[in-house]
């Protein structure tokens, strides 16, 4: 059993989890952001159920602040992969008064996504939502189960997580509750990239070095887009950058990089000494930023 490489073992593990998910739940969506992790999960879902189509559809929670490239990629991916796609808009939650736009410096719609997501889960009567989150990303995610229970308020209760012994997954739940399922739990950022190289999976160009107008914010570079308002004295500069994560443009920071293709990215990651989430302004707000958002129903 141990004669295989870590990546092959992680692939088999993810496929096992995806199949358990399909077998144990009735209505399952794959949370798709157009980022590399959800692209890899979609690829694994195709492998898990081949030659049949995967019994899941894609769900994108659109903050309205996405990079244009992400949306284009999403639509192209849906076309070529054959997945059905549902999109729900944070703007709709704001318009209906359920979500209130942040004010102050660096306002972001990132945490508002949770409201739209939970509404979508209710509306689509989902009993499970598959995510591409990984344990290596962040210290509260390091605590995640594969089948992660959410109460009827959509909340995560980190101190009361269900035991998950061996590979036996318990999907029993009360009405109104749901599960988040994380097939990539044990993968690292480098695993994801090595898998992308191995399986020749296409990802958005945002991940590779390109020239872009950016402004420095804290320790990261933010793209100068219509979604962020410049403060006095800020002057966008043209830099060669790439994104390590692809999310809401207001909080997804770029890094200065010359890595122009998958091989370069892998080489860069082998020497990098900052975590992937260090480029996310949403995680830099406090020590428990992620735990707090996860409790509220975040991805």
């Amino acid at each position: 059993m141990k004669l295989r490489s870590a990546l092959e073992e992680l692939e088999a593990e993810a496929i096992y989890v995806l199949r358990e998910c399909a077998a144990q739940f009735d209505r399952v969506a794959l949370l798709f952001s157009g980022g590399k992790d959800s692209i890899v999960v979609a690829h694994l879902a195709k492998l898990a159920f081949a030659p049949a189509p995967p019994p899941v559809f894609l769900l994108h929670i659109d903050t309205g602040h996405n990079f244009e490239e992400t949306i284009k990629f999403r639509d192209r991916f849906t076309q070529s992969s054959g997945f059905a796609l549902e999109v729900r808009h944070v703007q709709d939650s704001i318009d209906s008064g359920k979500a209130i736009e942040e004010v102050g410096s660096n306002p972001s719609r990132n945490s508002l996504q949770s409201i739209t997501l939970l509404d979508a889960i209710k509306e689509l009567r989902l009993d499970a939502a598959i995510g591409g989150a990984r344990r290596d990303e962040e210290k509260s995610r390091a605590k995640e189960r594969f089948f992660s229970h959410r109460n009827s308020f959509g909340q995560w209760e980190p101190r009361l997580q269900r035991p998950e012994v061996w590979q036996i997954f318990n999907s029993f739940k009360h009405h109104g509750e749901h599960f988040r399922v994380f097939p990539l739990n044990n993968w690292t950022e480098l695993d994801v990239w090595e898998y992308i190289r191995w399986q020749q999976i296409e990802v958005p160009d945002l991940y590779f070095a390109h020239q872009r107008m950016v402004v420095p914010r804290g320790s990261v570079w933010l793209a100068a887009s219509k979604f962020i308002s410049l403060v006095k004295g800020e002057e966008p500069e043209l830099k060669t950058i790439r994104f390590r994560t692809v999310g809401d443009a207001t909080c997804t920071g770029a890094v200065l990089s010359e890595a122009a293709n998958v091989d370069d990215v892998i080489e860069e990651l082998k020497t990098v000494n900052l975590t992937e989430r260090s480029t996310r302004a949403d995680d830099q707000r406090s020590e428990s930023a992620m735990e707090d958002r996860k409790r509220e129903g975040y991805f």
């Binding site: 344990r135 290596d136 962040e138 210290k139 509260s140 995610r141 390091a142 605590k143 980190p158 101190r159 997580q161 739990n185 044990n186 020590e287 428990s288 735990e291």
Partner: peptide
């Protein structure tokens, strides 16, 4: 990784690294 763990300086749930 959890707020409660840091404040009590104990491990409550398993963490994977």
């Amino acid at each position: 990784g959890l707020r409660a763990e840091r404040s009590q300086k104990i491990t409550i749930d398993v963490a994977y690294r």
